[in-house]
């Protein structure tokens, strides 16, 4: 299978079940909502060492937020409810509560509740105020610029983490250009995030290492500088590989993101230096979700 001259390998991305939630962060203006969201999603590229994977899902207009202010939608993924709870408490407490004019709301309506304002309210030292409107409870915590408003809880949902595809290009600049085109297209898809810097990862990993203390190490079969030295998975002529990792609230959302991402990357075509599209997997024995590239792109 080829798209615009770019070979699509007959392979699949292997993904895993995760737990996820969505937060809606609002502020006086979009700039400050983004400051809070960027801080919240900082150091959240991989559960391997960050505890969670998080990123901004999209910008929200005043009409889309509970308090009628500009906002940002953020998705957080973790391996368990317990870890997600811990990450929420730390990240919202240190990054959103602290950000001027911010407010924080749950963005998922169904599922088990995870504490949000329920624990953060204690920062109010007894001066916090509870407000129950309909079925939802909010906490008003007095802070130096007024009040931090936070919904009592958010909801957790089953999700999928680790969808991915690899862009194999002749050189770094071409791989980067194709990745940027893919990410721009994928950011229009709802319910997914690409948690790595700029949505792109250059250090794809394999499970384990020759060093006992490391749970993961470089995916040497996709490193072009090792081509010919190891059992490389790269065709001759590949000079750079970039990976796009996708976490989604549902498998169909990852399907869609993969589809639009690969099609956008292939827009550069073989003439633009893009040689092939592949995907990372562990032989299909570890993750229950398999995203077959050729099936998705049909």
């Amino acid at each position: 299978m080829k798209i615009n001259g770019v070979f699509i390998e007959d392979t699949f991305a292997e993904a895993f079940p995760m737990k996820a939630t969505r937060l809606i962060i609002t502020a006086y203006n979009s700039t400050w909502a983004n400051h809070a969201a960027n801080a919240l999603t900082g150091f959240a590229t991989s559960v391997i060492a960050c505890g969670c994977e998080a990123s901004i899902e999209r910008q929200l207009t005043r009409q889309e937020t509970p308090d009628g202010r500009p906002g940002v939608s953020v998705l957080l993924f973790a391996m368990s409810n317990k870890e997600l709870t811990k990450q929420l408490q730390n990240r919202v407490g240190q990054c959103v509560l602290t950000s001027p004019t911010s407010a924080c709301f749950g963005g998922i309506e169904t599922g088990d509740p995870l504490p949000l304002g329920k624990t953060l309210r204690y920062f109010g030292d007894g001066y916090q105020i509870s407000k129950k409107l309909g079925a939802k409870r909010y906490w008003r915590v007095p802070v130096m610029d007024g009040e931090f408003l936070c919904e009592e809880s958010t909801r957790v949902t089953k999700a999928v983490g680790g969808g991915n595809f690899l862009i194999l290009a002749e050189n770094q600049a071409q791989a980067l250009k194709a990745s940027e085109l893919a990410i721009t297209a994928m950011r229009k898809v709802r319910d997914v995030i690409m948690p790595f810097p700029g949505g792109v990862v250059r250090s794809g990993s394999k499970v384990g290492s020759r060093y006992k203390t490391l749970p993961a190490s470089t995916n040497h079969r996709y490193c072009p500088t090792l081509n010919g030295v190891v059992d490389s998975a790269l065709p001759a002529g590949v000079g750079a590989v970039l990976e796009i990792v996708i976490d989604g609230l549902t498998a169909p959302a990852i399907d869609e993101a993969t589809r639009v991402g690969i099609r956008a990357a292939c827009g550069l075509g073989r003439k633009g230096g893009i040689m092939a599209i592949s995907a990372g997997n562990y032989g299909g024995n570890l993750g229950p979700f398999h995203f077959k590239l050729r099936q998705i792109l049909k």
Binding site: P66, D67, G68, R69, A103, K131, L133, G134, Y138, R140, G146, E147, F148, L149
Partner: peptide, 13 residues
């Protein structure tokens, strides 16, 4: 005098 963030929620409710 303040513009309290919870008031828009109350109004919308």
């Amino acid at each position: 005098e303040f513009e309290l963030a919870f008031l828009p929620l109350l109004i919308s409710y």
